[in-house]
Design a protein around this nucleic acid. Structure first.
Lengths: 211, 211
DNA sequence: GGCTAAATCCCTAATTTTAGGGAGTGTACT
DNA sequence: AGTACACTCCCTAAAATTAGGGATTTAGCC
């Protein structure tokens, strides 16, 4: 049996969800709360395996509650359930440590599926949310290089050293070349990247993921 | 009806999946292929809405095929189905533009659910995969600040200017303070961040997401 | 062979940054 | 009333970076 508690400010929603969960196989519904002000004590008292958490609640938001609970009970699974599907909320929820994110419009059996998924260590994301997460993920990692910049092997090597915060002298040592050669390379790098200083070059290198 | 094609090198798997999909409601199964060498021409010919793609295939991997197909047909939905659940494969698949990732052990009806999810613009991730994605996501974005560093408002402002590649003089102008004050602030910043140069400070600022 | 690009080296001089030091103002908290 | 801290400013001098210029060697390509 999976012990579940619910945080949800909307009375109707809270009562109907409670009823549904209480009558679901494999779920032991331990309690429902209209706000998350005493979330920690509730968790301590009811020892849930999975928490269903609304985002929009008076006093303490579901995001804040998630952060607090995860700090003290990192193994409790938290399933966000909300009507919000904007990037920011999704982003915050994930960063807070949520184990799943389902939108409220889903069929009630999806709640049970999601609870079972997160209980065994998986995550459950509604398709719309999953799409958002993947999009954010790609945006983060896929290299966008509109202006294709060609740095030579040596130049990349030296740029990498600069990113590490090394001085010209240290770079010369590390690459086993003369100080003056480092100067030359860096001059060329600046020209190729259209920058005029080390910090600028470093920022550009990082954002273009050249190194 | 959702037009679906399948890339899968394992004969048994290919045939049983084909059978199952061909008999599923709402799905028009258009074809199955043992490798992805002519993926583009197959897509052109069969005009699928959704492609089921294995990762491990001879000649051309499912990841490579995904990249190629997405380049030409960005609107075709690609659903990765594989036995691999290691971080690297998941990561690559997502970066390649996959719209979903399901592991082969799932029940056949999950295939149909996933196909329907991606067809309407959502994404579908198996719980284990979703958990991995969320973990990677958190790892990327959650600020790990073991050494809690407090920069004052002004210091953050100046650090931001440095990240933009501005010189001391430009910063002084921008913040409407004297050059010497900029020096003082930067000295303090270096002390707080335990660095000795502008590039280092910039890198640290970015990786600690202080700015 | 001639050409090009990468990589190496050197010089000078201007400019910028960094490392010391000290010092005054205002605000907020105790 | 006193203290702490953020913010401001100044000075000097050493160190590092940037901007010019030019030069050689090696390797690959036509």
């Amino acid at each position: 049996m999976i012990r579940v508690i619910l945080f949800e400010d909307n009375k109707n929603m809270r009562e109907s969800l409670s009823l549904y969960l209480a009558s679901s196989d494999g779920i032991w519904f331990a309690g429902a709360f209209p706000d998350a002000r005493n979330a920690i004590t509730s968790v301590k008292k009811f020892k849930p395996d999975v928490i269903l958490m609304d985002i929009q609640m008076p006093q303490v938001s579901g995001i804040e509650a998630t952060i607090e609970i995860k700090k003290v009970y990192p193994n409790v699974k938290i399933l966000i359930q909300t009507i919000y599907e904007d990037d920011d909320k999704v982003f915050q929820a994930i960063c807070a440590g949520a184990n799943g994110y389902i939108i409220k419009s889903t069929k009630p059996e999806n709640y049970v599926n999601a609870i079972k998924d997160v209980f065994v260590g998986g995550s459950h994301l509604s398709p719309i949310i999953a799409a958002k997460v993947l999009a954010m993920f790609q945006h983060q990692f896929v290299r966008i290089q509109p202006t294709y910049i060609e740095l030579t092997q040596r130049e990349k090597e030296i740029l990498t050293c600069m990113v590490k915060g090394m001085s010209y002298k240290m770079i010369a040592d590390a690459c086993d070349i003369k100080f003056s050669t480092v100067c030359t390379h860096i001059k060329n790098i600046y020209e190729k990247l259209h920058v005029n200083s080390a910090p600028e070059a470093v920022v550009k290198a990082l954002e273009m993921k050249l190194v």
